[in-house]
Design a protein around this nucleic acid. Structure first.
Lengths: 129, 129
DNA sequence: CCAGACATTAGACAATGTCTAAATCCACGC
DNA sequence: GCGTGGATTTAGACATTGTCTAATGTCTGG
């Protein structure tokens, strides 16, 4: 895990390793407070500020991807390969859609002086009434 | 405007008409607090609770579409026809991408007992460094 | 061991949105 | 016109997520 951090130009401190472990051992989409909860299960080890700082750092360094899907919280995705997402509104459950199931084609004219940061495709589903 | 509301099964009260007007006269993507600001420019007329209640009602009734694009606030889109969105991270500017520029194909297997609520395609751009 | 840079922390703060209980509005029957 | 009842609006307290700051802690090269 320390090597993974180093390879992304991140100084592997104790807290960062814990947080990376929380994200990468389960291959799940976690929100900041879920990460907090996992990291601090045994004894309180890592502060809220550090969790937020570290997640932001991981995003900048391309280690994880930020998912803006729920109006109230951000999720972090340890899978940075191209894929899409399915969000179950009622339960808040977020899962991957393999790139083989859905394709996006075309590109819009971009505003001058801007570059693409990412393209997000989200399928929102709810329980059939 | 009252007729538009009635046609969507919404009782056209004074406040609802004001809010609908804010959204539909400018064809823009507004956040709840922008709606608040527009509605209350002259004299304070409409409370925060009513703005939130009304926007939620409009979404339920299919009058506007909810856009989850910015980690800190929800936008409301008066255009309910199929189209996609371009979000400028640095400025927070949100604009439409006509359906002719980008296409989505395929569908993932949906979890049992769920139906699609919507498919969102968002292109995020940032200022080129 | 020291200096200095880097990392972490507690807790105050900010922003967005929700909730509740009371007040207001309005259509209807009389 | 007047009262009734359901729908609507409201102020403000509250909850949640995330940011900021100033102080403290840690680590490394020399």
């Amino acid at each position: 895990m320390a090597d993974l951090l180093r390879s992304h130009d991140i100084n592997p401190t104790h807290q960062r390793i814990e947080i990376a472990h929380a994200l990468f051992s389960r291959q799940e989409h976690l929100s900041a407070d879920q990460v907090m909860a996992f990291v601090n299960t045994r004894h309180s080890e890592t502060s809220k500020a550090t969790v937020y700082n570290t997640l932001k750092l991981f995003v900048e360094k391309g280690l994880v991807r930020e998912l803006i899907v729920d109006p109230s919280k951000v999720f972090y995705d340890p899978n940075t390969h191209p894929h899409h997402h399915l969000y179950e509104i009622d339960t808040g459950k977020l899962s991957d859609i393999g790139a083989e199931y859905m394709q996006v084609s075309g590109l819009p004219p971009l505003p001058a002086g801007t570059v693409i940061e990412g393209i997000d495709l989200i399928v929102r589903v709810r329980r059939a009434s």
